[in-house]
Design a protein around this nucleic acid. Structure first.
Lengths: 140, 140
DNA sequence: TAATAACCGACCTAAGAGGTAGGTAAGTCC
DNA sequence: GGACTTACCTACCTCTTAGGTCGGTTATTA
């Protein structure tokens, strides 16, 4: 499995925020309810998105979170990279990991490289704006 | 991470067997040595490839394993599916898992579907024969 | 019959997934 | 100023999986 619930939830929250933008700040309590996700769990996921400047939050009544860009300026790959740490399909491609000692003679390495490029390319081409037009646009 | 060491090792073993085919049966002891992988760990990975008919093994001296097809008839996807169980990038696409209750209204589902198709298509187009021409064809 | 090699099952450790619980800090409304 | 609301922080928990090791048993051949 490449993408865990952490990353998938982050995408759903971002999409939810996008759909309710223009209504000021959106409280996580509402998002958790709408999306059927534990509020406490969401609170653990969001801080890294704030730190990276993808969203901003304000405390107190009427507060919540808000997007800092237009929905089409959020590539899915960026959100996954922040929440998942990395999205490389195999460990030896993880940036941060020291290069495998056999990488020079490794027969499979070129394939993993190409796969990585393929996946990253696709996930960079999809944005939150694309996710907003879901299978059932009846809601909203 | 989508592909664990289990699947990666299986690919390296299959490639090794392909490179040494025509020399009769190849003992796992040799492969483990050449590839720098624990023999005991390999012994845990191979049975499922035998059961699926991708390789065959014979006991006793002079025994070992042998490919049952030509190298270009082994798509990488088949080997990974056997050893990894599944290669879907997200849990909700795993066959065997009951469909997610929110799949109908899920905004992200179509994207995961497309990603899955993309990855599967690529890994089905690469075969063991392609892996044999590695980065350094000096060996062999 | 001894050596070799596939095969089988139990076990182990560390890490990560996927949370829960409880509290603090900051801001708003009355 | 006090109640309320919301983000934010820290600690902890359970279960599963990765990634093995160890010791043995069966089949085959020199």
């Amino acid at each position: 499995m490449m993408v865990s619930s952490r990353g998938r939830y982050a995408l759903r929250v971002m999409t939810d925020l996008a759909e309710h933008r223009g209504e000021g700040y959106t409280a996580m309590r509402e998002v958790a309810e709408r999306q059927g996700i534990s509020l406490k769990y969401l609170e653990k996921i969001l801080p890294c998105l704030v730190a990276a400047g993808l969203i901003e939050g304000v405390h107190g009544k009427g507060g919540g979170y808000r997007l800092t860009r237009e929905p089409d300026r959020y590539p899915v790959s960026e959100i996954l990279r922040l929440t998942e740490g990395d999205i490389a399909p195999v460990a030896c491609l993880d940036c941060g990991t020291e290069t495998c000692s056999r990488s020079a003679e490794c027969r499979t390495r070129p394939m993993w490289d190409k796969l990585n490029t393929l996946v990253d390319g696709y996930l960079s081409s999809v944005t939150i704006a694309d996710l907003m037009e879901g299978p059932q646009s009846t809601e909203k």
